[in-house]
């Protein structure tokens, strides 16, 4: 399977999306990332029962926090797929990139360069 997905995405592997903390997502945006998204297993298929459900709640929380500070909540998203769905992974990467391109660059980026 030869699949392409946007090269601007940096993948950080975690054992389960349940490991992702609110601060991991928030810090990414705070440090100038244009967007951040979590890709977890399909709902109902978590090896640890509810890791991906917790991740979804945390992503929702981060979206609210971003809106609260004056940024677009859609800079954070959660996607679900199974480990056998390579084409879906590539499609989500493309979708997220298009979403971020529509939102424009993170206005906090300039502070990190300074």
């Amino acid at each position: 399977m030869r699949l392409d997905y946007p090269t601007n995405i940096k993948i950080i592997r975690v054992p389960c999306t349940g490991k992702i903390d609110v601060m991991h997502l928030l810090r990414a945006i705070q440090k100038g990332a244009d967007g951040v998204y979590a890709v977890g297993c399909l709902e109902g298929n978590c090896h640890y029962n509810e890791g991906n459900l917790r991740a979804r709640e945390r992503v929702e929380h981060v979206r609210n926090l971003l809106e609260e500070v004056g940024l677009e909540g859609d800079r954070a998203r959660m996607y679900n797929l199974s480990s056998g769905e390579g084409p879906t992974f590539a499609a989500y990467a493309k979708e997220m990139t298009e979403n971020i391109q529509a939102l424009g660059p993170n206005p906090l980026k300039k502070w990190e360069k300074a």
């Binding site: 903390d21 609110v22 601060m23 928030l26 705070q30 500070v69 004056g70 940024l71 906090l108």
Partner: peptide, 21 residues
């Protein structure tokens, strides 16, 4: 501790957006 970190991150971002870090 976590709530302190979250609030600090929020304040940091909000004040930078206001050009008043």
């Amino acid at each position: 501790e976590k709530e302190v970190d979250v609030l600090n991150a929020e304040l940091d971002m909000a004040r930078k957006l206001d050009e008043n870090p």
